[in-house]
Design a protein around this nucleic acid. Structure first.
Lengths: 239, 239
DNA sequence: CCTCTTTATGGTCACTACGACTATAAAGAG
DNA sequence: CTCTTTATAGTCGTAGTGACCATAAAGAGG
């Protein structure tokens, strides 16, 4: 931050890009918009936009999240800065530095594409490839980040509605990690972690499921998991 | 990234700020520079500078790191993006978005203050307060980040010279975390983690220490710790 | 109505990891 | 030679967890 008068500085455009995840039909989905203009016209991209003069990147990201999802209240949603992408050639028109964010939604509200985004669509994560700009990379980084954070935080409840069953919570882990987990062991771990989930006073779910009705839980006050809930095959990674 | 023609965008200045840590005399130190001009003239700040037109933020950060430390080869040093700070009022003169990085140095080369930074100095972390801009916040975020990463990565070896003793490695943990660790248990854990450290073929250190000479180790190929090496009192955090 | 399937829930058992602790070895200081 | 200091080896009990097995409670289909 020193030397303002020693080097001239180039003006940059600053944008935010959002990797918005949800779980739909037991599969991880991400919100994409279709680009209407060059470059990358017709290609899918992460939602985002310019940071306005009076905004911070976080404020801009939450504004874009509201616009793209069409949700009335996005204040309770989990929004987290991922990292900043600043490679000189990442936008062919001009020098754009983009601050990427990750957001987690409980369930997919189908109605969206509020303001400027031409078409917005929930896309299965595995099908979200060949995106515009460096968005493939951003999306992969975001996926890796949330997978890692599930291990040592209570983030998984952010994918769930206000009241949920342990089976739904387990499905969050299985969907993001792409693995299966032993149900009794998962249950034991979650219930043994104080503040992770709290039982709903007198409720059990009946109608939907095919099997025995499951108890309902809410997200607890805890934010971190000690000890962590490690992925089955996350051992011995050398690189 | 859509809507280029729909909203005018403000040009931003983009800078990098570096939180460079080392361990000196058993205490965590951070590299600071003294500002020579307004605003915050005479105050200490994190080293940093503008991102040049042809650079990425990472490139700019490594260039600044070389300039401020005066080191010939900074290519092997650990440099990691922390996060981006973009609050509208964080620089009183203009709109500046800063990408913050964290760097870890094995030992403190006293000679530095290479190019534009008036005076650069290693400062004990606990004494690095009341910095310019929002650098107190950046520094605190950086400290929290490296403390957390020590738990589940092999980052601690980045604080050590090429060959080190387990006592030195333990001191890294104790210094960053501000705790004490049980020596035999720490030793057992480190040696039981494959790829964390590797014994130097036939060496033991003699001259310096007062006690029994310690075996020398090098950093191994592993990058992550499974299971993690958790801090003594990092349990039950609710907020 | 009975049986099969499905999901939820409760439990056991063995093994690993770890905190707390004791003991021994090998150096320098006095 | 003894004291101090640091490194290293090992022990013991407990928490956490992976791999199971068993039971309960619902719907589906005969």
């Amino acid at each position: 931050m020193d030397g303002y008068d020693k080097y001239a500085f180039e003006p940059f455009a600053v944008t935010v890009d959002l990797a918005v995840f949800t779980i739909r039909d037991g599969a991880l989905h991400v919100l994409l918009v279709e680009r209407g203009q060059e470059p990358y016209a017709g290609r899918w991209a992460l939602p985002g936009g310019f940071v306005r003069p009076e905004e911070s990147a976080e404020t801009a990201a939450r504004r874009e999240l509201a616009e793209e999802t069409g949700l009335q209240d996005v204040s309770g949603l989990h929004l987290e800065q991922l990292r900043t992408y600043s490679e000189p050639g990442r936008d062919p028109r001009m020098r754009v530095v983009s601050v990427a964010f990750t957001a987690l939604l409980p369930d997919a509200p189908e109605a969206h594409g509020g303001s400027d985004a031409a078409r917005a669509r929930w896309t299965p994560y595995d099908a979200a490839r060949n995106l515009a700009f460096d968005h493939d990379r951003i999306l992969a980084d975001a996926h890796e980040r949330i997978g890692a954070k599930l291990e040592y935080t209570c983030l998984a409840t952010r994918f769930c509605p206000p009241e949920f069953t342990l089976g739904e919570l387990q499905q969050v882990y299985e969907t993001v990690w792409g693995t299966t987990l032993d149900r009794p062991n998962f249950r034991r771990k979650v219930l043994a972690t104080p503040g992770f989930v709290e039982a709903v006073p007198g409720g059990a779910r009946l109608t939907g499921g095919r099997g025995k009705p499951a108890a309902l839980y809410r997200a607890g006050p805890a934010t971190t998991l000690h000890p962590p809930l490690l992925r089955p095959t996350s051992e011995g990674r050398t690189a």
